[in-house]
Write a protein that binds this DNA or RNA. Structure first.
Lengths: 148, 148
DNA sequence: CTAAAACCAACCGAATTGGTTGGTTTTCGT
DNA sequence: ACGAAAACCAACCAATTCGGTTGGTTTTAG
C-alpha cells in the first residue's frame, strides 16, 4: 500500500517551501532541482495544492510559490489529502463520499479498514511542517548537512 | 492509498474460514460465493496464503481449505503482508529489504513515512481473526444477520 | 522587449490491477 | 474402476493508473 509519488513529492515540496521559503516567492525550478523532482510534473502537483489553498502563487518574473499559512498551521495530512484524497484503505471508509455498501451494517472487515484509516489520519494530522523543520534542525544541521 | 483487492479479499476469505470453517475443509467455491469474490481470482490469493503457511489445503473431492492455526493466532497483519507486502507508504521504510536512499540519514520525510508505517502495523498486528469473530457476534448476530 | 516564471491541456509508455481461460492432478463416493 | 469435485497451475488479457513529457499561453520584473 504505497503512497504514490504525488503525495510523497507534494510533502517534500511543501517541506522545501517551509524550510527555504520566506517573504519572497520561491520558483518551482529551485524546489524541483533541490528535491530532484521533474519540474513539469511537480507543476501539476503544486497546481493542485494551490487550488486547495495550501500555497499562493506569484506570476511573472521573480515569481514563484509561497506557503499560504505558517508552517505550524499546515499539516502533512492536508497536503496528502489534497493530492491523494482520503487515506482510507477501502472506498467504504473514505471521509468524503464513502461508497456505501449494502452490507455495511454487518461488515466486520469494514471495521478493520476504518481502524486503519483513523490510525493513519491521527498520524498525518498531528505532523505539521514546523515539526518537520524542527526534526530537520535536530537531525541534519548538527551533522553539517545543510539545505537538503 | 487504497489497499488492493488482494488484501481486502484475502482478509474477507480468511474471516470466512474462521467463522464458517471447522474440522473439515471448506471448499473455495463456498467462500467465493458467500463473499462474492471471483473464484479463480480468489484461488490465486489463497495460493499465496497457503505458501505463507496461513492455510492448509486438502486436495480431491470433499477437499478445501483450513486455517493453519486457531483464529486468535492469526492476525490481519500477517494476511495483508502475505498478499501485499509491507504496509510502508514508501519503499525506503519497508520492513523487508528497504530500498536505501543516499540521503536517508538526513531525510525528514522518511521519518513521516516511518511513523505512518508503524502506526498501520500496530493496528493490523493487534487484530486477530478471533477479534473479528467477536465483533461479528456483537455487531451482526443480534441483528439477526447470520452467515455473512 | 526579453527573460523568467506561472499556468494549462493533451499526450504517452510502462506497470499494475483485477481478473479470465484452459488446462492437470488428486481424491472421495459409488 | 469411474465420474465428479476440488485443488493446483500457467498463461493471457483489457482497463486503469502512474509518472511523467510536450508544446504551448500568459504574466510580470528589469
Amino acid at each position: 500500500m504505497r503512497l504514490s509519488t504525488k503525495g510523497r513529492y507534494g510533502v517534500k515540496a511543501m517541506f522545501d517551501l517551509a524550510l527555504h521559503g520566506g517573504e519572497s516567492p520561491l520558483p518551482l525550478k529551485t524546489i524541483a532541482e533541490r528535491q530532484e523532482i521533474s519540474e513539469p510534473y511537480l507543476e501539476q502537483l503544486i497546481s493542485t495544492l494551490r487550488k486547495s489553498g495550501l500555497v499562493h502563487s506569484v506570476r511573472g518574473a521573480h515569481g514563484g510559490y509561497l506557503l499560504a499559512d505558517s508552517p505550524d498551521q499546515i499539516t502533512v495530512g492536508s497536503i496528502i489529502r489534497s493530492l491523494e484524497g482520503s487515506m482510507a484503505p477501502a472506498d467504504c471508509v473514505a471521509e468524503e463520499e464513502p461508497v456505501d455498501c449494502s452490507k455495511a451494517d454487518c461488515c466486520v472487515t469494514r471495521g478493520v479498514w476504518e481502524k486503519i484509516r483513523i490510525s493513519i489520519d491521527n498520524v498525518i494530522d498531528s505532523i505539521t511542517l514546523q515539526d518537520m523543520i524542527d526534526d530537520y534542525n535536530e537531525l541534519c544541521k548538527q551533522n553539517k548537512m545543510y539545505y537538503i
